[in-house]
């Protein structure tokens, strides 16, 4: 039955090569911690992705309770934190994951940097990685406001003033993010929510896809 379904699909769109490409490749000795313990540094990239998956899943469940308006945002988070079953754990995973993902991302970057894995022919993938880093910082900044507590509010005000310091476009950038040149309020919260939940994750998925496709095309860099 399952085989027949698979064959039916494979006959039409030839999906076998797609997963064979992932399934058939060999992992070289120098990246395998079973052979060289120091190869654990190669885990950092995968663990970064693992935390990203945790962030996506916990974030999806947070939006089941979160209400992005200034009257109810804080109350919905408070309710989630105190009343909802396991709400504290799910929010805790999203809260701590946001910090852990940056740590893992930096460790992964250090591994790639000090092994020279960014050199030809992998320069493009380094650039994609840097873009992913900026997306992550954006996700951290926009996500910080969403609980709408006092710390979030004033941290965002400081963050927006930093954005305002950007030469030439700073003022417009701040208005674009906050919805008003001066007020951090209802507009700011809905915009940050949209950016945090739709714009940046969309960009993140695209960049991650490019990051992984390039790894499969180019293979892992050689031993030192």
């Amino acid at each position: 039955m399952l085989q027949k379904m698979y064959d039916w699909i494979d006959d039409r769109i030839d999906i076998t090569p797609i997963w064979r490409d992932i399934a058939d490749h060999e992992v070289p000795e120098h990246v395998n911690p079973a052979h060289h313990f120091s190869a654990f540094v190669y885990c950092f990239g995968g663990l970064t992705f693992f935390v990203v998956v945790i962030q996506i899943l916990s974030g999806m469940f947070l939006t089941m309770y979160y209400v992005p308006d200034i009257e109810n945002a804080w109350k919905s988070v408070y309710y989630l934190q105190t009343e909802v079953a396991h709400g504290q754990i799910v929010r805790g995973m999203h809260h701590w994951g946001a910090s852990v993902v940056i740590v893992m991302l930096l460790l992964h970057t250090l591994r790639v940097f000090f092994q020279g894995a960014y050199k030809k022919p992998r320069e493009l993938n380094w650039m994609v990685g840097v873009l992913i880093f900026f997306i992550m910082l954006g996700l951290g900044f926009t996500g910080y406001l969403l609980p709408w507590d006092n710390k979030a509010y004033f941290a965002t005000q400081v963050g927006l003033e930093i954005a305002e310091q950007v030469p030439f476009i700073g003022g417009d950038l701040k208005t674009l993010l906050a919805g008003d040149p001066n007020i951090v309020g209802a507009q700011t919260l809905t915009r940050f929510f949209a950016i945090h939940v739709f714009f940046l994750p969309g960009a993140l998925f695209a960049l991650l896809a490019v990051h992984f496709i390039l790894i499969r095309r180019q293979g892992i860099s050689g031993p030192l």
Binding site: I22, E26, V27, P28, H30, K119, S221, G222
Partner: peptide, 14 residues
Amino acid sequence: PKDYSEYPGRTEAF
């Protein structure tokens, strides 16, 4: 750095 294909070793199926 050289490509790892220049170092045939104990590879493992992914």
